[in-house]
Write a protein that binds this DNA or RNA. Sequence first.
DNA 1: TTAGGGCTTCCAACGGTCGGAAGGTCAAGC
DNA 2: GCTTGACCTTCCGACCGTTGGAAGCCCTAA
Lengths: 157, 157
Amino acid sequence: MNIGDVSRESGVSTKMIRYYEEIGLIPAAHRTEAGYRTYSDKDVHQLRFIRRARDLGFSVTQLAELLTLWSDGHRASADVKRIARQHIAELEHKIQELRAMTDALKHLAEHCHGDHRPECPILEDLAGAVEVEARHMDLTRFGAGGVDPVRRKKEIH
Amino acid sequence: MNIGDVSRESGVSTKMIRYYEEIGLIPAAHRTEAGYRTYSDKDVHQLRFIRRARDLGFSVTQLAELLTLWSDGHRASADVKRIARQHIAELEHKIQELRAMTDALKHLAEHCHGDHRPECPILEDLAGAVEVEARHMDLTRFGAGGVDPVRRKKEIH
DNA sequence: TTAGGGCTTCCAACGGTCGGAAGGTCAAGC
DNA sequence: GCTTGACCTTCCGACCGTTGGAAGCCCTAA
């Protein structure tokens, strides 16, 4: 099987398969005389494993641990469970952060009239609630939409 | 004020201030004869605005829009609300994804004994539930923990 | 033999932030 | 005036995971 075949069968792009090989997550594939990578059904199976774990949000580092455990017939399921629990904790922490953001934003958005008038509690909060009056007086000349600077390698889309 | 002062007062690192200038999010600062950037209280104000918006998870692109609106005395609050609502939707979508991951993982972890034995529903699910038997028979030789490949620029920690 | 697709490697970009090197500048203390 | 140390400058790279593209070789069917 060539790399394109395993890619289709495993759902992992050829780019990523080569990358995983490069970082040592998967062993280097055998090569044909022409230098083509060749794969077996077992490799497809392993890449599917990787794909699923990635879909569950495991990092590549965690994935390496899981693969080692997967390959170890004498593993203790406690080790797997530990990795999973740790990942769950990370995910829940992330969720908490996002929740806090959305709650704060929703609260602000609810109090914004959302009409043609310029008054907006969202901007006022971002500017700093204490300084609302000052902002109205003399801070209206800011902005990124003005004269366009040089913009070397990156720019805002 | 030098860049270090604004950084301390705004909570935005000097690295990021230079970066924001480079991508055109903020205008290029004035320079002293020696080439040092100089800033005013208004710049501190603006950077605080940026800091708060970033803390709320707005992307730099969205930030550019918000800054433009902030600087526009004739803006309609509806525009700000639209950006906020869009961002809320993105955040909630992300939360949903993470929720789905944690739910799936929790379900698996609950059914894992977590003891010394190798049997583990977490790994079995990752390997593909249908092929559990096959895995036990002949797929135990996989793994990233084997012979360490060359590892050029990147490696797994 | 030619055309097309697949394969190879290498280089860069994305977003946002940080670390560090190499060198110039400024203030204080001697 | 000189040294010291904190600050500033630019430039380059790393992080993580993924994608895009270029340039060139290989394979197969027509």
